[in-house]
Computed example of a mutant assay.
Amino acid sequence: MGGMGSGARRAMNIGNVEDMLALDIRALRRLGVIQPGECIIDTLHWSIGGLSASSVRLRVDLSNIERGGTMTVSGNMPDGTISQNIAIDRVPSSLGGWRYYFLCPVTGRRCEVLYYTGGRFASRDAQRLSYAVQNMTDLSRARRKVAKLRRRLQGSGNIARPRGANRIDIVQRLRDAEFEAKTLYLDRLRNLAERSGSRRMPSERR
Rank of each mutant, 00 (worst) to 15 (best):
V106R: 10
E180H: 13
R190F: 01
I14V: 13
L184H: 02
V56W: 04
V60E: 09
T117V: 11
L31G: 12
S93E: 07
R59M: 13
W98F: 14
P162W: 09
G97C: 11
A11D: 11
L139G: 08
R173N: 15
Y100W: 13
L114H: 08
C39I: 10
L44K: 13
A177I: 07
R143W: 07
S52D: 15
A160V: 13
R206H: 09
S130C: 13
L44T: 04
S83E: 12
S74R: 14
D169G: 03
I14S: 09
A165S: 04
F121K: 02
L189G: 02
G155Y: 11
R90P: 03
V60K: 12
G108D: 09
G3P: 00
R120H: 07
K145P: 00
S52P: 12
D61F: 10
P202L: 09
L184M: 05
L44S: 00
S83Y: 12
V17C: 07
Q127F: 05
P36T: 03
S130W: 01
N64G: 08
Q172D: 15
N158D: 15
G5A: 03
A8E: 05
W46V: 03
G118F: 08
Y116I: 03
S196V: 03
R29E: 14
R163L: 05
D89P: 00
R200M: 06
V133K: 06
Y131R: 15
N13A: 04
I88Q: 06
G68V: 07
D138Y: 00
A142R: 04
D19E: 13
N76P: 00
L58C: 11
R195L: 13
V133D: 13
L192V: 02
G75H: 03
T137M: 06
L95P: 01
R128C: 08
F102S: 01
D176L: 14
I25Q: 02
E112T: 13
K182A: 15
Y100I: 08
L153Y: 04
L44Y: 08
M4T: 02
S198E: 09
R195T: 11
D187Y: 00
L192R: 08
R175I: 09
L149Q: 14
N16G: 02
Q35L: 07
L103K: 14
S6W: 00
I40W: 01
G68I: 05
G50R: 10
N166Y: 08
V106A: 09
R167G: 06
S55T: 08
R150N: 01
M71H: 07
T183W: 04
D169T: 10
S6C: 03
G80P: 09
G5Y: 02
L28P: 05
V56E: 02
C111S: 10
R152Y: 08
T72C: 05
S52C: 09
N191G: 10
N16Y: 14
M1D: 09
L184F: 04
M71N: 09
R199V: 05
G119F: 04
I168P: 00
R206W: 12
A177P: 14
V113Y: 01
S63Q: 14
I88M: 06
P78Q: 07
P162F: 11
V56H: 01
L189Q: 15
L186W: 04
I159R: 12
E178W: 12
P105I: 08
R190G: 05
L44M: 11
N135W: 01
R67G: 15
G96M: 05
L44A: 03
S83N: 11
K148I: 03
L62N: 03
S140K: 01
W46R: 04
